[in-house]
């Protein structure tokens, strides 16, 4: 069958809301778009372990310590599912990791910000996991089967993380003056970077239209960002805190909250590698990978020896 016909059938399946599976025909551009998106997502989960991992050994109660450890471990699990989903598109995890370690691959720029106080564990859960859910719930209906299925599992856990983060902030908001100040400061630092997590404005997001046609994406960046603002502007009231944006105001006519201008220079600067923690995050990933090389090599060597021993004893028998 010629490619033109296959592509026509592919587009028809997409239009009919069919799920595309690994063995099905897919246009090269579709495959590439998915590899880029899923691997960026996987890298984000893994790099995302670092800012929160920063507080595991200092968690202020045993209950919080266990919850944070379990949360960061969940992110590792998300990374694992996503690398597996990506591998169904015909690329190895090791190659994807090389792209991350060399700095060629991108990950969510939010993780290039530092976690400076314990309250950041709350703000990250509420805002960062919160934004992740907004982004990811529609991906549960993504046209590519393995990605959609991975997202179903991931989203369940992310919404638990989000509630846990909010509850952490709520506890601080009812605490001492120092705890309240800590919580407000964390919200102030994480709010704008969290809004940037939805990506550039629609007019500066050239691939959105195609991704939407292929049903990889279901909403535009700006639509999702607006949804986030609408939800958080309400939730922040329960905390008795404020969002660091004087322009946030309910707009009766639009049925949405208006909000202030995003500092896109900052966004592009962080993407370029110049954020506060880009270097630390990449260095930490490289260090873990490099220092783990002897372990991975030993495990492979041992497995090979075991296989040889088993073959030998089978021969002898």
């Amino acid at each position: 069958m010629d490619t033109a016909l296959l592509e026509e059938q592919f587009e028809a399946r997409i239009a009919a809301d069919d799920r595309i599976e690994p063995r099905d025909f897919m246009p090269e551009a579709y495959r590439k778009t998915l590899i880029r998106q899923i691997s960026q997502h996987a890298h984000s989960e893994i790099v995302g372990m670092l800012p929160e991992g920063n507080w595991i050994t200092r968690a202020p109660s045993l209950r919080r310590k266990v919850a944070l450890l379990a949360k960061v471990q969940d992110e590792a699990g998300h990374g694992l599912y996503l690398y597996s989903a990506c591998e169904t598109l015909g690329i190895d995890r090791s190659e994807l990791l090389d792209q991350l370690h060399s700095g060629k691959a991108k990950y969510s720029s939010i993780f290039n910000y530092p976690t400076l106080t314990w309250a950041d564990m709350g703000a990250v859960g509420w805002l960062v996991d919160g934004a992740a859910i907004m982004n990811q719930v529609p991906l549960c209906r993504c046209s590519y089967g393995p990605y959609a299925r991975a997202m179903v599992r991931v989203c369940k856990e992310e919404s638990f993380h989000q509630r846990q983060g909010f509850e952490l902030l709520l506890t601080l908001s009812r605490g001492t003056e120092a705890q309240k100040a800590m919580a407000q400061d964390a919200i102030n630092r994480w709010w704008w970077p969290a809004l940037m997590m939805f990506g550039p404005t629609d007019e500066n997001s050239p691939n959105t239209a195609r991704s939407m046609r292929w049903k990889i994406k279901r909403f535009t960046n700006d639509e999702l960002r607006q949804k986030m603002v609408d939800v958080c502007a309400e939730q922040v009231k329960a905390l008795g805190m404020t969002l660091p944006d004087p322009d946030i105001k309910w707009n009766e006519e639009r049925g949405h909250y208006d909000f202030g201008a995003i500092n896109w220079d900052e966004f592009y600067n962080v993407i370029k590698g110049n954020g506060p923690c880009n270097k630390e995050r990449l260095d930490a990933r490289n260090k873990a990978h490099d220092e783990g090389a002897w372990v991975r090599e030993a495990a492979a060597a041992y497995a090979a020896k075991q296989a040889a021993r088993e073959a030998q004893s089978a021969e002898a028998a």
């Binding site: 266990v66 471990q73 783990g292």
Partner: peptide
């Protein structure tokens, strides 16, 4: 061992050792 979380030699072992940490603290 909780300090290994996020820094393990390979993802699967990162998860496995974190399980041990979770059990011990529990």
């Amino acid at each position: 061992i909780s300090a290994w979380c996020g820094h393990g030699p390979v993802l699967e072992q990162d998860i496995a050792l974190t399980n041990v940490a979770l059990d011990l603290v529990g």
